[in-house]
Design a protein around this nucleic acid. Structure first.
Length: 496
RNA sequence: GCCCCCAUAGACUAGUGGUUAGGUCACAGCCCUUUCAAGGCUGUAGGACGGGUUCGAAUCCCGUUGGGGGCACCA
């Protein structure tokens, strides 16, 4: 791995309480782009302090999704989740408890944090009452000034304690956001928030700061739903006398109804898109455009270009609506840039009912080539190519009725069989010339030849270029298929 | 209730004081064409509203409205 710029260290810090979703992927991408652009380090940290909702499955799911997207990290758990990459590990917060504990002790020692013996119920009541009295629903700080004796008494009663941060009651906290500019928050609006739960596990706003400091994180890029957490975190940095990283709060991604993108908007996890047949490169490109753009509004980027051109300062402030239609278009663009060979390989897992690996590679690739321009999703490949790969396809009723049973079609098909059987070589120019000559001989329009031939060999009215398709099938298969079609026509219109 | 964020067409966006307001998706039409696509061309459609500042405002300031987020021993 190349030498990293030590002054650029960013991280993506998901909590493993579910799969990696689109919003998370976008945050990860922007961090990754920034790190790669500046030759810095991209760190993956798992924030698993929610002991109830965190699961190992989520961890492996997130790692897998990151890997699939190609967002490689320089530090963090190894992709299998078992080892450690980098010098600031472990990268699971539940394995870093001693660090939070000692920082917390230091704050208590400095008089900037204190034990609180209130139960969750008591605090909730406090908030309700405050709200009724039209005051902000805050913890009232009743344990702030407990004497040593008070504390001893509470401990003797066996009361559990959490640790709260002593938020300044006056003054303001200000910072400059790389995207939003100067921001000012009044300290008085903040409550004394819990930094260590009764279980000894840190809360998010505390663990995050401790780790970002310990891991020497230089820039924090996250969703702007965290904007109001930032002053709390800054207060902790200041209390500890630590250098504050630079912040950039990314605008949210919304669903079509304008609400934050969530499960009720349909597919929202990265794996949903993988399974639907999207290419990671296309997803990434689309996500990059959600909240970021170049001066010339460039749409398609190679990964290299994206890294080169990405600038956090060019990120927009306003939330962006996720548009599946544009993603689909973009995926088609990426697929058309993929070679038939690669596309074929990528599409193989999407054949659910047939064993495509039994098809000769060349045949399969040739079939994919014929349909390439129609593929938008990898999952389109099976339905687009199955009638080219296997001969036992169904003739569509509508195609048979409309085209094969049309007036004069039977005679044309019969003549096609005769002439095609004698065609040598059986190639595109030959087939085309043969069909056109036949049209002339019969005194009909080209279409009167082309359409029946198409349906005869494919069972459908739409498909690849006719000549190329027939050439691909070869003489034997073509004739077999036409004979099958003739049986479908039956005697009804023969000779007319 | 309080705090915060945001505001260019249906969607993503460019443009930071003087532009015929540009690009992309979607939509419509035309061309290409045996079909379906792909591609090419053309088109419909846009600075929420109200006040300022200024010779001049999408662009700067204030307000209104609308949308979003937060106010946990969740992250």
């Amino acid at each position: 791995m190349s030498v990293k710029n030590p002054s650029i260290r960013v991280r993506f810090a998901p909590s493993p309480t579910g799969f990696l979703h689109i919003g998370g992927a976008r945050t990860a991408l922007f961090n990754w782009l920034f790190a790669r652009h500046h030759q810095g380090s991209f760190i993956l940290r798992i924030e698993d302090t929610d002991e109830v909702r965190s699961t190992e499955d989520s961890v492996s799911g997130i790692l897998q999704s990151m890997k699939w997207l190609g967002l490689d990290w320089d530090e963090g758990p190894t992709p299998d989740g078992k080892g450690i990459l980098g010098d600031y590990g472990p990268y699971f917060q539940m394995q870093r408890l001693s660090g939070y504990q000692s920082t917390c002790d230091e704050l208590i020692h400095k008089g900037l944090a204190y034990p609180c013996y209130c139960t969750t119920e008591e605090v909730e009541k406090m908030r309700e009452l405050a709200l009724l009295a039209k005051r902000p629903p805050k913890y009232d700080g009743r344990c702030r000034n407990l004497t040593t004796e008070d504390r001893r008494a509470k401990e003797a009663e066996g009361k559990k304690k959490s640790i709260r941060f002593k938020t300044p009651i006056t003054g303001e906290t200000r910072f400059t956001d790389l995207i939003h500019g100067a921001k000012i928050f009044e300290n008085a609006l903040l409550e004394d928030f819990v930094i260590l739960k009764t279980t000894g596990v840190p809360t998010y706003n505390f663990a995050c700061v401790v780790d970002d400091h310990l891991m020497k994180i230089s820039h924090v890029f996250r969703g702007d739903d965290h904007l109001s957490n930032t002053p709390r975190q800054m207060l902790v940095y200041e209390a500890m006398g630590w250098e504050v990283p630079k912040f950039a709060h990314l605008a949210m991604i919304l669903g079509s109804d304008g609400a934050r993108l969530s499960k009720r908007h349909g597919a929202t996890s990265v794996t949903d898109y993988r399974d639907a047949g999207y290419l990671p490169s296309a997803l990434l490109n689309y996500l990059a455009l959600l909240g970021w753009g170049t001066e010339d509004s460039q749409q398609l980027f190679t990964q290299k270009e994206m890294v080169e051109k990405f600038e956090i300062e060019r990120c927009g402030k306003s939330p962006a609506t996720f548009d599946p239609a544009k993603l689909l278009w973009m995926n088609g663009e990426y697929i058309r840039k993929t070679s038939a060979h690669d596309l074929g390989e990528l599409a193989k897992p999407f054949f659910k009912t047939r064993d495509v690996s039994a098809v000769p590679v060349k045949t399969y690739e040739a079939a994919v080539t014929l349909e390439l321009e129609k593929v938008k999703l990898l999952s389109d490949v099976p339905t687009l190519t199955d009638f080219l790969l296997w001969d036992d396809f169904e003739y569509r009723d509508e195609a048979v009725t409309k085209v094969l049973k049309a007036e004069g079609a039977a005679g044309i098909v019969e003549e096609l069989v005769k002439r095609l059987a004698m065609l040598e070589p059986f190639d595109v120019p030959g087939i085309e010339a043969l069909c056109k000559t036949l049209a002339k001989d019969k005194g009909v329009k080209n279409g009167a030849i082309f359409h029946p031939l198409r349906v005869s060999v494919s069972g459908r009215t739409e498909g690849p270029s006719l000549w190329h398709m027939v050439e691909y099938l070869g003489k034997a298969r073509t004739l077999e298929r036409i004979k099958r079609a003739q049986q479908l026509i039956g005697g009804a219109s023969v000779g007319r």
